[in-house]
Amino acid sequence: MWGGPTITPNTIGFLLSQAWSGIRRNGLLTLASVSNIAVSLAILGGMFLVAVNLERMARLEAEKAVITVELKEDAKDSEVEIAVWQDPRVGDVEYLSKEDSLRRIFERYVANPQAVTLIGGNPLPDSLRVKPASPREIKPLAASLGKVSGVAKVRYGQQVVEKILVLARSVQVSGAILLVLMAFGMMLIVNATIRLTVYARRREIRIMQLVGATNGFIRMPFICEGLFHGIVGGVFAAAICLLVYLEVVRYVDVHLAFIDLLYSTRLLVAFGLAMVTVGGVVGGTGSALSLRRYLRLA
């Protein structure tokens, strides 16, 4: 007689039918709550996808990053190259004569590469293209390479990487702030909806309390109802995000081929599941909160 509550098939059926009757009774509000969660989560999910892709772009860019070490006119390239190799952070070094450099530029940017012969002089210096062992060390490595004797100037494409990283970080930060605000908003509306169910069912709740139902048991159908709002909202949000994202990936593939967007089925499935989970957590928490005060009063 003093044991804990036992869960039987009858119990589960009872709880689910209670939850379902609440969902039906609040038709319009359920719709409002579900669509609120769907839209909020879709916005957050969209920001997440943008941030993840920006970060990935920054990383890919950083991996491609190369330090260009321009040599002085009078420097001996082999000596400088040996000196550069002394630094353990150096991954690879490639010597590029001024002629090679010029040819590369023409090959890449000029419609007729043969035009290279039309230029009289060559303003470019001899250079070494240094690939850092790790992209993260590019900045300190460049600084110390600048001090090697015979080196005129050091250049690297860090600026682009840094800009993308800053952008990714600002998307992340605003996403995090938005997450907090929207989670709050989502919980409020779930809370308000569940509160109406609680109110409509106050007689049942009262009787449950008098015949000895535990608070956990009384709470369960309402939490199921909140979970339903959150999970359905999450499913819609995931569907919206994934459909739009796949469309964007297709467009970018065709029209902006130099941008390489993240595309992995496993990752996108995980993303969808995460959306549904966040929705469920928000919905469940929102409804649990709506009952706390009510149950304590009794």
Binding site: P5, T6, I7, T8, P9, N10, T11, F14, R203, E204, R206, I207, M208, L210, V211, G212, A213, F217, I218
Partner: peptide, 23 residues
């Protein structure tokens, strides 16, 4: 304090439902 939408049988059974009784 009966629940108007439940039959007599269901009202009595309600007290068993909420304490986790089996069917």
């Amino acid at each position: 304090r009966l629940l108007p939408q439940l039959t007599v049988r269901e009202n009595v059974g309600f007290a068993l439902d909420v304490v986790g009784a089996s069917r």
